[in-house]
Amino acid sequence: MHEMGIAQQMVNIALESIPRDIVNPRVENLNLRIGKLAAVVEDSLKFCFEIITKGTPLDGATLLIESVPVKVRCRACFHGWEVEGPVFTCPACKDGAVDILSGRELEISSIELADD
């Protein structure tokens, strides 16, 4: 539901990152890292991105999304594992709170500019 806001922030950061000395820059790809636990719907994000980049150097750019797995560690027994569903119970000790090590990312790694 908030993908438009996220797309807008993403576009601002990407546009800021284009070197000023490039004439008529055109971004081909935007590399993103999105955690599986992040509340982002990829299709909505792509849809919003397409709409707001019309007529900008990002027009037609592809969003290349690296999906980051949810990795956690048990505070009781320090067992670490990858969470695949909504259950965060420690498979080793069945007890203990967990620390999230990854899976909430929402980052721009890089942009790739066309060479022409």
């Binding site: 950061i13 929402l106 721009i108 890089s110």
Partner: peptide
């Protein structure tokens, strides 16, 4: 040309 960014999208918030 690839430009490295490594920034959080929600960094302003």
């Amino acid at each position: 040309m690839e430009i490295n960014i490594q920034r959080k999208v929600l960094e302003a918030n």
